[in-house]
Structure formats: C-alpha cells, structure tokens
Design a protein around this nucleic acid. Structure first.
Lengths: 341, 341
DNA sequence: TTGTAAGCGTTATCAT
DNA sequence: ATGATAACGCTTACAA
C-alpha cells in the first residue's frame, strides 16, 4: 500500500494526499477528512525510505560507539543512553555503528552511504581516522571527545586534565605524598586516546606543582586488571597511599586488591576518580569522584549536531565540562603505610 | 555526486557502472578498471537510501530496547551488545528504538515507516502491544523473550522458571527452609512481564514441592531498592536464610543490607540468582548464579531474524536456554539466624 | 559486452 | 483547492 492507493480510494491525486498529510498547502476540510478516513481504515504510513530519498535527509543520526565486543564502560553507556534519549525526544532515530577497529565496514556504510544526516562519534583519539573521514565526506558530526586540534571540530568533552589535577590537589591537601595515576589501557593510551593523555598531563603538572612523588600506570578496563594493577603498585611502591583514576571499570578490582592487602579505604588508602554518578554512588564504599554529567553532554551533542545539520557552515561549538568532585567515602587523611604489612 | 557522474566520466552508461559494482553481469576488464579508477578518484559510494528504495530492503534491523531513560540492566546491555555485534558481522546496521513506554513514536516510525527489514524486540510482556503491532504490519520480528502464546512467534528466551526452580532446589539441598524470591519491579511484574511471572511460577511450585516456606517480593532495578528490600525482608521474616533472585541490579544493595545487618554471605545467608556471567563474577563475593549466555541468545536472535526476512513464511523457531548454575561464593549450608541479632 | 528506460514511493513545482 | 508530473539515485528487465 502506498500513497497512490490512498489517493485512488479517496478520489484525489497523490499530491493532495501528500499535502493533506504535511499541511504544506491548504486542503479543503471535506477532502482532508475523506483522505484521513481512508488512511485510518488502511493504516497507511508514508514510506520513510522514499521520503528520505526525495527530501535528501533521513531524519536519522549515526552514533559511532566502540566495538560492541569489548564491553562498554558505564560512562560510555551513559553517553549512549543520553544520546538515544535526546534524539528520540526530537523524533530522530539513531543508527548504531560499532567502529574504531581496523576495517570499519559499518562506519563506511553509515557515513559514505549517506544513511544518516549527521554523526556523533565517541572515544575520539588525538589523531582520529574517523574524524578525518567525516571531514572528507562533509557529513556534519559532533565528537564526544576531541582531537589534538580541537578548534577544527564541534565537540563536547570532559576536562580530564582539570579533573585529575583536582583529584591530586585534593589528595595532596589530605597529606598524601605518594600518589598513583591509574589510567585506561596501555593500548588505548598508546593509540592516542585523548582523555588518557590529558589525564596524564594533569597528573604530571600537579604532582610537580605540589612536589609529590607520582607514579603512573595503565590498566585494562575491567575488575581483574584493577586487582593486578593495584597489587603491582603496592608491591613496587611501598610508600603509596593514594590513587587518582579515570578507569572506573577497574575500581571494583582496586577495592578488592586493597582489602586483600589488609588496607581499608579510606583509613589506610585513598582513591579519587572520574566516573558516572550512579556508579560512584553504588560502589562500596561510595567513590569520591567528579561525576560526569553524561546526560547533559549527550543532550548537548545532539543539539549541536542538529544545528550543524541545519546549517553546516556555522562556527564550531565546544562544551568542556569539569564537574566538581563529590566527596564520598574513599578519601581521607594520609596515614603512613607500614611497608611490611 | 551520483552514479550518473561516474558513468559520464567513464564514458559508459549508468547501468554499466551499477553492474561493475555489483558484479551481477559481466563487464569487460577495461571498462571495469576505467570505472573503478573514476570511483576511486572521486570516492564515490552508492547512496544507500536510493538503493533501499529500489531494492525494497534497507539492510537494517530495528532493535527495540527499553526506554533509555531508565537504565538498562547488565543483562539487557549484554543482549544489545551481542545483537549489534552479530548484525555487524553480517553487514547489517542496527536502528535503535527505545520503546515500551506510552508514546512509542520511535517504534511507529521504525516499524510503520519501513525503515528496517525486521525487528528484534526486548523485554516482551505476556501480552505485548508491540508484538501485536508487528504482527499487524507483517514485518518480520524475533523476540528476546516471549508472550503468553509463544508458539505464535519466533523468540529466544531464558528459562527463568527452570532456573529459579533450580536455585530453590539448590538452596533447599543446602538445608534452607525459608527462602525469598526477589523479583523485578512491581510495575514490571504487574504489567505482565514474562520473566517475572515465570520466575514466580518456578518459585512457587518448587517451594511447594520441597515443603519450604517461600516469600516473594518485588524490587526495583537498582541498588538502593535492593537495600530497602532486604531490610524489609529481614525484618518481616526473621527466619529467612536465603534469597533467589532474577534482579541482578539489586544485588549489590542486597549485599550491603545483609552486611549492615551483620550477616555474612554465605555463612549466615545465601543468595542464588540469574545474571550475566561477568556481572556474577565481578561481584564481591562472586555470585552463585545461572550465567545467561547473552552472546549466544543475541546471535541466535539475529540469525532467526535474517531467516524470517529471507522467508517470512517459515515456521517459527524458538530457543529456550537454561544454563547451569555456577557455584561461586554466595551459597552455603543453612545456619539458623538468631531472630534477635 | 553495453545501453535504454521503467520504476521504487515520496515531495514539490508547475499548471489549472 | 486540486491535479499532473518531474525529480530523488539507484537496480534491473529488456534491447541491441
């Protein structure tokens, strides 16, 4: 059943049906009602594909997520949820593209095949092939995260440099002198993952500024790795009393390793991080952390994208958030660790 | 730039370009190379929308998820990931539709607008409007979950009835006599959520069979509710020594409430559940649970859907899994609780 | 081996 | 107020 069918049955032309539906030109009340009756009877709905072809837009946005095979972190999930939610609110559909690996067939399909009006890209690297490709095609896009030349694109991002710096300051204020940064996975950081590098930068300059002893390490995004990471840290750096981290997925493991080493948090050891709010709250003990407002960021990304789709030549907009650190249960005054315990 | 542009520049007709691309009819080596050169130079990619209109299929499947606003459980996330993954593997894109609430505009758009070739629906109720609607439209679909008349549709599902029954048997074998079932939220169950009802059925008949004292309760899908739920349970049923549950999101809260009540797991209290494997493993202590193979289920759902798309009239297929219970750290021999402690 | 042309279901520009 | 008709970009009979 197509628009022609409706036209025939209501005794009007196809254009009249189209106009009755869109309201873009006046249609007499009687014909409109007659058409509507037929539509209701047959349950007709315009074919979105045909409309997209004709109109040159799909009313769909692409969301480029990390490959689904490796589990997404809670923060990433928060972004996905908020983008989907914000898009649904303005009647946009979301096409998922799990990309970032090598042969991004899905990415190419979505982007080069013009299946979408614009794209939101997650987990951006300082040098990012997908961004390069998007720029080539001219398809409007917004990053959740930014490249090394951030002026040249629209993005929303978390100010990891600032946040880690604040964490370190906070820990230093509590008297901690030996502090570790637990970063995301080594591969991710090596591949130029922005937050990893910026967290590192924030860590280094604050450690220097406060004359602390800083050690940084990478850790894969899971609890087991968190355990191994902290065990190694405690072993190699007996004087360590605190951790700052952007690796939320590893935190439960850190807790475990600490407690198995006989250390209580926050009495013997402090942890401060960057995380999704509900995640931080639901940990036990609840994590002292900067709560990333994923909802706000995702909604803004969608809004920016819509604007770029409407007018691709507007100047780029940026949103960098540095939420305050919420004091919860994992940071306290430094207490010297007995290297033999 | 369209296929006509490529045709012009290579001095052939548009159909030749199309055939050179699809290989559906032989094209001489020279012309093919000439065409390919032009394509490479201009970076041409066929417009997926036009192709979809012509071919009558979109090479896209819809995935109907619970509204993104209320957080998805780990199990749900596991399904989403595995569907996206399985679809990507066979070059299908996934269009997300957060539906199930009241105003399912997104669902209507996707389904009635024929934006997809088929749909996978999550969180199916015993009576499900979306299933009814899909049946009306004739669009191929597969459920992750099943309605009250499961023969009439294709689905994959977890045998919650069997699994909860096994949990209860396991706990009974360990000597527990007073056992609670912690279900999903009251609204969900009231709305006819299949797993909730089937878990209940399994619980009731096994409790009867083993002559146990069973109490069932609902609990929202979050840690806080888990705390409240267990507090109430301990308060109202002093003899309770074990819980069986399908509410994974509430488990961290249950742990907390138990430990705050001075009860250790599994020495004083046992818990057995149904959950995603990594979730069960990463809890502390790791949860004795039936590990739902989300990967297998998601992949099967996609495979079934592809088959139904290819031949909408094949008989319905079903996959009901009842993974074994993995013994981990949360179940042990019953020990009488001191009602005054 | 290649070209011509119809048609997928819309929307929108002309007419009337 | 309404109708005829030309696109949108592609695939695929049907011809040559």
């Amino acid at each position: 059943m197509d628009i022609g069918e409706i036209a025939r049955r209501s005794g009007v032309s196809r254009s009249t049906v189209s106009y009755a539906l869109s309201g873009k030109r006046p249609v007499s009340k009687e014909t409109r009602q007659r058409i509507q009756a037929v539509i209701d009877e047959l349950g007709y709905r315009p074919n979105a594909v045909a409309r997209a072809l004709k109109e040159g837009r799909t009313r769909t946005i692409g969301l480029v997520i990390p490959p689904a095979s490796r589990r997404l972190t809670d923060l990433q999930l928060g972004f996905v949820a908020s983008v989907v939610d914000a898009a649904a609110r303005v009647d946009l559909d979301v096409l998922l593209s799990p990309s970032g690996g090598e042969h991004d067939r899905s990415f190419e399909r979505v982007v080069a095949g013009r299946r979408v009006d614009g794209v939101i890209v997650m987990e951006i690297r300082l040098e990012d092939d997908r961004v390069t490709r998007l720029r080539q095609t001219g398809l409007p896009f917004v990053g959740i995260g930014r490249t090394g030349r951030p002026e040249e694109m629209s993005w929303v991002d978390v100010d990891y440099e600032m946040l880690i710096s604040r964490c370190v300051h906070h820990l230093a204020d509590l008297g901690h002198r030996r502090i570790a940064l637990v970063n995301r996975s080594a591969e991710l950081v090596a591949s130029g993952y922005g937050p990893g590098h910026r967290a590192q930068a924030g860590f280094l300059h604050t450690v220097a500024e406060r004359h602390l002893e800083g050690v940084q390490t990478c850790c894969a995004d899971d609890a087991q790795s968190g355990v191994a990471c902290v065990e190694r840290l405690l072993d190699e750096h007996p004087g360590l009393t605190a951790i700052a981290t952007i690796n939320e997925a590893a935190i439960p493991g850190m807790y475990r390793a600490l407690s198995e080493a006989g250390l209580t948090v926050p009495d013997d050891f402090s942890i401060a991080g960057v995380s999704a709010q509900h995640w931080a709250e639901n940990l036990h003990p609840p994590l002292t952390a900067a709560d990333v407002p994923t909802d706000e960021l995702g909604a803004h990304a969608v809004e920016m994208l819509i604007q770029r789709i409407a007018d691709p030549d507007t100047t780029h907009r940026h949103l960098l958030v540095a939420p305050p650190i919420s004091l919860r249960g994992t940071t306290g005054p430094a207490r010297a660790r007995d290297p033999l315990s």
